[in-house]
Amino acid sequence: MCVLTGDSVVASDEALKAFNDLKLGKKYKFILYELNPSKTEIVVKEASDSADYDDFLAKLPENDALYAIYDFEYELPGEGKRSKIVFYAWSPDTAPIKSKMVYASSKDALRRSLNGIAADIQGTDFSEVSYDTILETVSRGTH
């Protein structure tokens, strides 16, 4: 169990283990994280091995914030397949203000705990997290 310091939010051991299972063990394709009910710890909401990006998008709530990690695979012409781990801070415009504020202020607690992230995405609507948008982000600087 993680120790709290003051009012800060911490990433649970389970959250960190799931990330390592995705990164090192390739056990998952994506992980959704949420704050526990007392807003003191970041926990795993769901982990999936579905390779369909639309399955991932379908899991993003229309009216609430969350964090997500996605093992994004893509192909560059003449260079073959690549894989980048992407961190999403999902905070749709329709989410409650308090939820957006809590998630924005606690993002660093999770983000700092995860090593090996290639890209950070701030999503407020589905166009910002579309496959093509993420592909453009992760493939920049790799040509």
Rank of each mutant, 00 (worst) to 15 (best):
S8A: 15
M101C: 09
P37M: 06
K27C: 00
L110D: 12
A95N: 10
Y74A: 02
V43R: 08
A89T: 13
N36D: 14
A119L: 11
S127V: 10
L22D: 03
I121A: 07
L4Q: 10
L24W: 00
D54P: 05
D7Q: 09
N36R: 06
S113P: 03
N36I: 07
L32T: 01
V129P: 06
L32K: 06
K23Q: 02
D120M: 14
L66E: 04
A65P: 00
R111N: 14
L24F: 01
D21F: 01
S12T: 10
K98R: 15
W90V: 03
L114H: 05
A118L: 01
R111G: 02
T124W: 03
L32Q: 02
S127K: 13
P77T: 11
D7W: 02
V3D: 09
A118T: 06
I117V: 15
S91I: 09
K23I: 00
F126G: 01
E34T: 07
S83Y: 03
M101W: 08
L110M: 13
L110H: 12
Q122L: 08
I69M: 15
F19C: 04
N115K: 14
S83D: 08
Y53M: 00
I97L: 15
D120H: 08
A95K: 13
I117M: 09
E75S: 13
G123I: 00
Q122G: 01
L135M: 07
A89R: 11
Y103P: 03
R112E: 07
D52K: 11
Y53G: 00
P61S: 09
Y67N: 07
P96F: 12
D132R: 05
K27F: 02
V44Y: 12
V10A: 09
L35F: 04
E46M: 13
P92R: 10
D49P: 07
R111A: 15
K45G: 06
Y131M: 00
V129N: 04
S105V: 07
L66K: 03
Q122P: 00
T94P: 00
T40C: 06
S127P: 00
S48D: 13
E136S: 15
P61N: 04
A89Y: 12
Q122W: 03
A68K: 02
A118Y: 13
A47Y: 06
S83H: 00
E34M: 04
L22K: 04
A109Q: 10
L57Y: 05
L110N: 13
D120L: 15
S12L: 04
A11I: 00
D132W: 01
A104R: 08
Y131N: 07
S91D: 09
N115S: 14
T133D: 10
T5M: 06
H143N: 14
E73T: 05
D120Y: 13
P77Q: 13
D7F: 07
G25K: 11
L24Q: 09
A104F: 04
L32R: 06
S38T: 14
A47G: 08
A18G: 03
K45A: 13
L135H: 10
L32E: 06
K84L: 11
R140I: 02
K26S: 15
K23M: 00
L114S: 01
Y33P: 03
F87A: 12
L22M: 09
K81T: 10
